[in-house]
């Protein structure tokens, strides 16, 4: 027992566990309790636009995770050198660079996705979640914590847009990840049994409805009330 206290005294500050309780909270909080889309209602634009199908949504989610995590890391590393008066423009420059990188890589290796997502990859720059995390967290916290925080927020964003895309693609196009689920179901029950798709789900209105339902279910469960 006594040796342990001595060791601690030498170290002064014991290193925090790689995934301590506080750090786990950085990741899990934005998933439900502080979700960027359903609670903070940020990043709605892309949530409506890209979620007609699962595949582009997944690419979009991965791109956003990359941009948020990397920009949080870079800004956090530079946080003590960034002049306060130009910090927003510095954040913007870093985010814009990362987004351009993502878009260039897509253009080289997944041209069809690049065409389909087109302007929305570029619009990650204006996604409020990215700048919001930089301002609120990365500027005042250490790099590792910032990465975790960014990862959490991006996951919170991703699972919501993937859920929305799942229902929109299923009900709107009768498929999941391009696999024609409705056709299979019709095949089981014979030719007279036809599942109809709903055109409303393909239009952005469909995303509003699904998103509204998700927010409703979530708030009923968590008891969250807006102040």
């Amino acid at each position: 027992m006594s040796t342990e206290t001595v060791e601690k005294a030498i170290e002064k500050k014991p290193a925090e566990a790689l995934l301590s309780k506080r750090r786990k909270k950085l990741i899990t909080d934005p998933l439900v309790d502080d979700n960027p889309i359903t609670i903070q209602v940020l990043g709605i634009c892309s949530a409506l636009a890209v979620t007609t199908q699962m595949k582009p949504t997944l690419v979009m989610a991965i791109s956003v995770i990359f941009v948020i995590v990397m920009s949080n890391l870079v800004i956090s590393l530079m946080r003590n050198t960034i002049p306060t008066r130009v910090r927003i423009i510095v954040q913007l420059a870093v985010v814009a660079t990362l987004v351009t990188l993502v878009s260039e890589v897509l253009r080289a290796f997944a041209y069809d996705m690049y065409k389909e997502l087109s302007v929305f990859v570029g619009l990650i720059i204006t996604n409020c979640i990215v700048m919001g995390r930089l301002e609120a967290f990365a500027l005042g916290n250490k790099p590792y914590d910032s990465v975790l925080d960014g990862f959490g927020s991006a996951l919170g964003y991703s699972w919501i847009i993937l859920t929305v895309a799942f229902f929109r693609e299923l009900w709107g196009s009768g498929s999941v990840f391009g696999i024609p689920v409705f056709d299979y179901v019709s095949g089981i029950f014979g030719p007279d049994f036809k599942l109809a798709t709903n055109g409303l789900m393909v239009s952005p209105v469909g995303a509003f409805i699904i998103l509204g339902l998700i927010i409703w279910v979530q708030r009923t469960k968590t008891g969250y009330v807006e102040h």
Binding site: A93, V94, T97, T100, L101, V105, R107, F109, Y111
Partner: peptide, 22 residues
């Protein structure tokens, strides 16, 4: 940042042109 971007564009350029031609 400028160097980073122009470097990427140089490296990926041929691949992108191939993808566009395809």
């Amino acid at each position: 940042l400028g160097l980073l971007l122009s470097g990427t564009s140089q490296v990926l350029g041929p691949l992108q042109r191939e993808a566009e031609a395809l």
